[in-house]
């Protein structure tokens, strides 16, 4: 009853918590040319686990900002302007906080839940796997 496949359809969160599910969803997003949204989502989780005393953490925050937020990529397009400004200012002031990407991650997650996740569950790649 609680097979991986049953979990995948339960929620996006359960899909992304399962290794095979996450990789299959990533393959789907690569095909749809919006894999950046998923990589950003995982980067936010990875960032949250980093040690704030480590000098690498500020660098990683800057890299995430440059890669996904500053430019006009799909992640940036799906974020609210205020959210992007908040992150930009935090980095400028070097005020790094574990939760600084939380709002952005939530916004991206909501879009994924409403669009890509629903499309994935009816996609060939998913049905073939099933």
């Amino acid at each position: 009853p609680d097979s991986p496949l049953a979990r995948w359809t339960k929620s996006l969160h359960s899909l992304l918590g399962d290794q095979d599910g996450a990789y299959l969803f990533r393959t789907f997003l690569e095909r749809e040319e919006c894999v950046d949204t998923l990589d950003f989502w995982f980067a936010c989780n990875g960032f949250r686990q980093m040690n704030l005393k480590d000098t690498k953490t500020l660098r990683v925050a800057k890299v995430i900002y440059k890669r996904y937020i500053e430019n006009n990529c799909i992640v940036s397009k799906q974020l609210k302007p205020a959210t992007k400004t908040y992150i930009r200012d935090s980095i400028k002031k070097q005020q790094i906080d574990s939760t600084m990407f939380d709002q952005a991650q939530t916004e991206i997650q909501t879009v994924m839940e409403e669009n890509a996740y629903q499309m994935f569950l009816t996609s060939d790649i998913y049905l073939e796997y099933v």
Partner: peptide
Amino acid sequence: LNSDEDLLQRCIGSAMPKRQ
């Protein structure tokens, strides 16, 4: 080697689910 891309990939990789 600690390029920006390496750092980012390591950050993403650290959050990917491990095999259950």
